[in-house]
Each structure stands twice: as structure tokens, then as C-alpha cells.
Write a protein that binds this DNA or RNA. Structure first.
Lengths: 162, 162
DNA sequence: GCTGAAAGTCGGCACCT
DNA sequence: AGGTGCCGACTTTCAGC
């Protein structure tokens, strides 16, 4: 179910990416449309699932979560149900912000958030390494952020005639 | 500037993470507070930078961005200004969703989003590998997503007496 | 598919507890 | 700190174009 998005839709999405709580009236004014027409388009985008939700963006450091790390995990494939077991373990660990299955040497790539280094160490040593089926871990602490694209829309305009 | 967040603040943040466009009235009702007291707390959280903004969540696949990849990049450190040059190159590539400086073998970890595999290949071969100072690339395509934590708050409740 | 008007609802503020 | 009440602004629906 991929919809045909015109330029007005893309401008709506751009605005809502930058200002998720903008009023429908302001949004309509910014894209030069009447409030009701604008609202109808937004609802269509929501119903189509293009917009899957809205959320506030939180500052992890201000919340006391100062350590971010990227962890690649390799599994011992002789352990039965290694995948299912690990997936369900991940759900119980709030430190794991995101988990992906990846190609290459490792099976999984995790992004982990902790309060400090000792919290991170505790997570790696006492929980991740002790999880059933885990063979090896490659742990990379994030020293700094260079780029964090707020919108995923920019790439659409490259070599794209829509 | 780290503020003391009480349980009411955390419940406000939880609600706004899940429903970024909830009305202040509904939010106040959900956390059992009057609308004005609730709004005052939200404004304080915004002013303190705990809430850094609001945005809609888009579905990359519905937008035609089907390929996600994790790329580790190592640099040739003998090239002058290798860091500054690479950082500014990254800003011009919309395919790069996020870029981090990491410890370990590689210098950078990138998350890349492209329309399809040929678009990804074009990015890696024609742009990333040709960037000045790039020595080696470890490219891992994402096969699936196991976990994507919408809220960063869960980890606060672990071993945390606030 | 967009516009415009009408009715219900909300956000923001002053003021009080 | 939290609650109440008010007014201007907003959202949302339903006509008509």
C-alpha cells in the first residue's frame, strides 16, 4: 500500500517532522491551503500509515542517560532456539533502544543507552554476555554525534521524480 | 542543567512520547492534574530542554525507502583534516540518517537509508568510498528490526530511585 | 478536491487557594 | 506548588462550489 504523494503532501510531512504539534491552522497557512483541506490530507496520511504517530523528542543527557553504545552480537548457532531466546531477552532490557538483524560477521546490532559507564559495564558483563547463545560481543561506545537527521524525507528528493 | 523530575513529570513525558499531539486537556486528565498545572509543567520541561521538540513518525517503507544499513568507516589518519572534511561531506548526503564517532576499530558508525539496493550500492561505491581520507568500510545491511524503543524512559526506572 | 461558516472544544492567562 | 473561570483561538464537521 504505497500512496502517490504530491508536493503538497511532502510539504505537510516536512512541517510535521519539524513541528509535530503545529496547529492545523498554522500548517494550512504554511502550505497555502485551507484548514479543512489541510486536515483532510493529514488524516489521509495518518490512515495510510505514512504518518505512524507523533512523539516528543527527549534529550537523553538531560534525563541522566549519558552513555550510548553500539553493540554487535554474534551467536553460537548450535544452541537450540538461539534466535527466539535472544529476541525475548532483548524485550526485557530497557537499556536496549534498538535491535536489528544485520548481514556480515555479527548477527545483531544493538544500540544501548545507560546512565553511566558502570551501568553500561553491568549491562554488558552481567546480562548481555550471560544471555543464552551469545558467543561474542563487539562493544563500541559512542564518543560523539556528528549528524542526526530529524527528517527522512531529504533522501526522497535525490534522483527521484515524484 | 539537570532538573529533578518527579513521577508526574515522568508520566507526562511517557504520554507525550506515545501521543505527541494529545491535547493538554486530555493529558491533564490522564495524569490526574488540572489543565493549567499540567500545561505549566509541560512548558517547564520544554524550556529546560528535556523536551527538545515534537515530530511525526514516518514509515520509511511507505515512503519508498526500503533499504537500511549500518556502515562502519575507518579513516586514513595521515590525510590532513580528515575529520573535518568527512564531517562536512556527511552533511551533503541525505542518505546518511545518523553519524556517530565510536570507539573500537572504526572511526565512524553511519546509519544509511536508501530506496533500494542499487541506490545503496551507488552511495557506497560512488560517494562514500571516494570521500577523501576514507580507508575502509564495513557495510552491514539491515535484514530486520527486532526492537525499536519509542521511549527512552524505561531505562530510568531500573535501579533508579528518582 | 477545495472553500467557508457554524458549533463545540481547547489553550493561555489572570487570579485565588 | 495546584485549582477555577474566562476569552480568544482553534479543531472539526457539513454544507456548497
Amino acid at each position: 500500500m504505497r500512496l502517490n504523494l504530491d508536493k503538497i503532501d511532502l510539504r505537510i510531512l516536512e512541517c510535521l517532522q519539524a513541528e509535530g504539534r503545529i496547529s492545523n491552522q498554522d500548517l494550512a497557512a504554511r502550505i497555502a491551503l485551507s484548514p479543512s483541506a489541510c486536515l483532510r490530507r493529514v488524516k489521509l496520511l495518518e490512515d495510510a500509515g505514512v504518518i505512524s504517530g507523533y512523539q516528543c523528542v527527549l534529550d537523553p543527557v538531560k534525563l541522566g542517560l549519558e552513555v550510548e553504545a553500539v553493540v554487535h552480537v554474534s551467536m553460537r548457532h548450535e544452541v537450540p532456539n538461539w534466535h527466539e531466546t535472544f529476541v525475548s531477552a532483548l524485550q526485557d532490557w530497557p537499556e536496549v533502544v534498538s535491535a536489528r538483524i544485520v548481514t556480515g560477521g555479527a548477527n545483531y546490532m544493538l544500540v544501548v543507552r545507560t546512565r553511566d559507564v558502570s551501568h553500561y559495564s553491568d549491562f554488558i558483563v552481567n546480562r548481555l554476555y550471560r544471555a543464552p547463545g551469545v558467543r561474542d560481543i563487539q562493544s563500541n561506545i559512542v564518543l560523539g554525534s556528528i549528524k542526526q537527521q530529524t527528517s527522512v524525507l531529504d533522501v526522497l528528493s535525490v534522483k527521484n521524480g515524484s
